[in-house]
C-alpha cells in the first residue's frame, strides 16, 4: 500500500467516525491533526469529498484557526504565554530570552526539527504568571531558572 493510499484510508476512517455529528468539521480536523501531526494539504480535497463540502470551505476553516498546522511541528513544542497577566510578571523578557537562546522567531521550528516555538494567548494560569506549556504540560511561575531547564529539555 502506498503512503498516499494509507493516508486516504485513515482520513476516510476519521470522517466515518464523525458521521452523524452536527457541524463535524472542527472535531474531524482535530482528529486529522492528532493522526498526522498536522493537516496535510493533500487531506483537504479528501475531507471535502467525504464531508460534502468544497475544497475552499475546508481550506478556509483550516487556515482560520491558529491550532491547525500546515506542516508538522518539531519533536518538542514550547508555547509561551504572551498575554497581559504574564506581561505584568515579566513574560516579555522571558519570551525574548527564549527566542534568542533558541534562535527562533514565533511559529518557527529549529532546523534540526527539535523544537517549535509558539506564542499562546492565555493558558488560564494568570494568577501564577508567567506561564508556559511544554509538549502539553503546563508550567506556572516561570523564571530564568525554570526557563533554562525547559530550554535544555527541548534541545534534543
Amino acid at each position: 500500500m502506498s503512503g498516499e493510499a494509507l493516508d486516504r484510508a485513515r482520513i476516510g476512517e476519521i470522517v466515518a467516525a464523525h458521521q452523524g455529528m452536527e457541524g463535524e468539521l472542527l472535531p474531524v480536523l482535530h482528529a486529522v491533526q492528532a493522526a498526522f501531526g498536522h493537516v496535510p494539504q493533500a487531506a483537504v480535497p479528501v475531507l471535502a469529498e467525504g464531508l460534502g463540502l468544497t475544497r475552499a470551505e475546508v481550506h478556509g476553516v483550516v487556515s482560520f484557526y491558529h491550532d491547525f498546522r500546515e506542516a508538522p511541528a518539531g519533536r518538542h513544542v514550547l508555547r509561551l504565554c504572551r498575554a497581559e497577566a504574564c506581561q505584568a510578571m515579566g513574560g516579555d523578557r522571558l519570551a525574548l530570552a527564549a527566542q534568542e537562546w533558541l534562535g527562533l522567531d514565533w511559529h518557527q521550528t529549529s532546523a534540526d526539527g527539535a523544537v517549535t516555538l509558539e506564542p499562546v494567548f492565555c493558558l488560564g494560569l494568570c494568577a501564577c504568571a508567567p506561564a508556559a506549556q511544554v509538549n502539553g504540560r503546563l508550567v506556572g511561575r516561570l523564571d530564568d531558572e525554570k526557563l533554562a531547564a525547559l530550554l535544555g529539555g527541548v534541545r534534543s
Binding site: E84, A85, F121, L125, C126
Partner: peptide, 11 residues
C-alpha cells in the same frame, strides 16, 4: 472559550 487574559473562573 475563556480567552481573556486574567480570567480563569470558567477553567
Amino acid at each position: 472559550d475563556e480567552g481573556d487574559s486574567g480570567t480563569f473562573a470558567d477553567r
